[in-house]
Nucleic acid binder design. Structure first.
Length: 566
DNA sequence: GCCGTTTTCGGCCCGACTGTTTTCAGTCG
């Protein structure tokens, strides 16, 4: 997949053009980059079919440039631009308050190319003497430089969601009539840059005072009458905006984003002779919608788009054509089919897991402790698997309301064989297979391993199919199309793993799998009872991948689920 | 540079806040 590389170059071109104040051409490159980045196909395949120009935002000029990148690995136009501005734009732009115009000014007047140059110039008070700059700006640059140098990663959704909900609850205690979390958290994006809060209140000053002086706050970035931003002690930025009830829907829509989706929606409004902003839909001066999101969509002649879909990946067109999927619901999950107990590397007993799963409203769950050679995970040998089966049988007699299925998570070895014998596996209800070693094999070998596991009649599920760990390990090189095909043909389910740093398959791959006709299973892979609540992250990811309940096997009630499993 | 349910030319999303300005440019979301 060269998609990422092509998109990166197109984005860099946009950066460089932006420094020169080129406006609309910049936007064109950004749009093309977005298209390529989230394309469900390999860009090389699209080129081979001669269909580059059919992609949204890609015309003659950019398609030729893409071909050049694919053919030569580089692009002359881009190389020339880089020569004009030989500087580390990305690093400099990561400093809050530094945009393309300022970066250009700093380069032209002071020759600043990177963060070191910037720091030196600021400390020698050279920046404050530049036109449009001053003492405050220079001071601000020095402050924000420290943060930029830390290279703050985006934070995992699973980490930030509880924090955002805590802050929301705090603000709800004030004199407010409504508080909502917007932004990428509401879209349930896998990683999050900041927290966006929208508030309706009759006491704006009280709310802003409280917000900017919360215990968690390290620094107030801006403080206005309608909008304030703070940085928390853990480095996370939180923005809070006040709105009237009559604008709340359009505000929620706008601040939920994504940015690209907003731009598309505003264009649609213009085409219909209206204007859309965060205060509402306007015909002339008159507000004609805005109280609720539903109202805004209706006014624009669109189907309501769930927040998880708002990424400008085709949902706008689908909405206009009444073709949006009916997304799987958070409440539709009837069971969790991968979890670990204190029989291997989990921290809670089977009973504790079962009681917690029962409280979550599940009808069934599978205990899938590690087996065979995975010694660091306290894996079970075959005699202990048999013992555990007996223990689960006994528990099922005791338990009421939830059925515990007997399972294991087996390892797929470097040649695609399982590390537990068929004689043992045949007595189990659920066999989860996963790659836990040899990640560095090449694409062919890794793909062959997984295909071979899928063709094994004992295997029901392939867990965390691509092996990626966000911020830690890239996905293995795999022929995903081949895997999807075999998954469909053998009836082997692909997992959507709900661990906050896995979310594997990820959203865009889920969409490809669903399109290919695969059936998926959303599991938590919980290693303790409290991790069972991570299910919502997996469901969110499936929703972002346009999955419907028919695509997700564990939305089935127990009887039907068992039938499908066999 | 892209695009078309008014258009193959003339548009291209829009507002809050800050700092450095006497009226606005730049940044951010």
């Amino acid at each position: 997949m060269k998609n990422t590389k092509v998109a990166a170059i197109l984005n860099r071109i946009a950066d460089l053009l932006e420094m020169d104040g080129v406006d609309f051409r910049t936007k064109a490159y950004r749009r093309a980059a977005h298209t390529v980045e989230f394309l469900s196909q390999d860009i090389e395949d699209v080129r081979d079919e001669g269909k580059l120009e059919e992609l949204p935002g890609i015309g003659k000029s950019i398609s030729r440039k893409i071909e050049e990148i694919l053919d030569t690995g580089t692009l002359q136009y881009y190389e020339n631009l880089k020569k004009e501005f030989p500087l580390d734009f990305e690093a400099l732009a990561a400093v809050e308050g530094l945009g393309p115009r300022t970066i250009k000014l700093l380069y032209n007047k002071l020759g600043i190319k990177n963060l070191q140059d910037l720091e030196r110039a600021a400390k020698r008070h050279k920046i404050r003497r530049l036109p449009g700059m001053g003492y405050k700006k220079e001071h601000q640059i020095l402050e924000n430089l420290k943060i930029a140098k830390k290279g703050t990663d985006r934070i995992l959704l699973g980490q930030i969601l509880p924090l955002a909900e805590d802050i929301k609850e705090e603000i709800e205690k004030l004199d407010v009539s409504r508080v909502e979390i917007a932004g990428s958290i509401r879209r349930m994006q896998e990683t999050i840059g900041d927290i966006d809060l929208l508030v309706v209140t009759d006491k704006p000053k009280q709310v802003m005072d409280y917000f900017t002086s919360m215990n968690l706050v390290d620094d107030v970035i801006t403080r206005g009458s309608l909008k304030s931003s703070v940085r928390l002690k853990n480095g996370v930025q939180v923005d809070l905006r006040l709105f009237k009830e009559s604008s709340f829907g359009s505000a929620l829509l706008y601040f939920t984003g994504s940015k690209e989706t907003n731009v598309m929606m505003r264009r649609i409004a213009i085409r219909k002779g209206m204007k859309l902003n965060e205060y509402g839909v306007y015909r002339g001066e008159k507000q004609v919608a805005g109280k609720t999101e539903e109202e805004v969509f209706r006014k624009l002649g669109m189907q309501y788009i769930e927040p998880e879909l708002r990424e400008n990946r085709g949902e706008i067109e689908a909405s206009i054509n009444d073709e949006l999927p009916e997304l799987v619901k958070y409440s539709e999950i009837h069971g969790d089919l991968q979890m670990h107990t204190n029989w291997s590397d989990g921290s809670d007993s089977i009973l504790k897991m079962a009681q917690t799963a029962d409280k979550l409203g599940y009808e069934y769950m599978a205990v899938t402790d590690h087996t065979g050679r995975l010694k660091i995970a306290n894996a079970m040998a075959e005699d202990r698997i048999k013992k555990q089966i007996k223990e689960i049988n006994r528990l099922n007699q005791e338990l009421d309301g939830i059925t515990v299925l007997r399972g294991v998570e087996v390892n797929v070895d470097s040649r695609g064989k399982l590390d537990v014998a068929h004689d043992v596996l045949k007595n189990l209800d659920v066999v989860v297979a996963a790659v836990h070693s040899g990640f560095r094999q090449d694409r062919e070998k890794l793909t062959a391993r997984i295909l071979s596991a899928m063709e094994n009649e004992d295997v029901n599920i392939i867990a965390h199919p691509t092996g990626r760990k966000i911020h830690y390990r890239r996905a293995y090189e795999l022929d995903l199309e081949g895997i999807f095909e075999t998954s469909r043909d053998t009836g082997t389910f692909l997992e959507v793993n709900s661990q906050p740093n896995r979310l594997d398959l990820k959203d865009t791959n889920i969409r490809r799998a669903v399109y290919a006709g695969c059936k998926l299973m959303i599991n938590t892979d919980a290693h303790s009872a409290n991790q069972l609540s991570n299910m919502k992250l997996g469901v969110a990811t499936a929703r972002r991948g346009w999955a419907e309940s028919k695509d997700i096997i564990n939305t089935l009630p127990l009887k039907k689920f068992e039938k499908v499993l066999n």
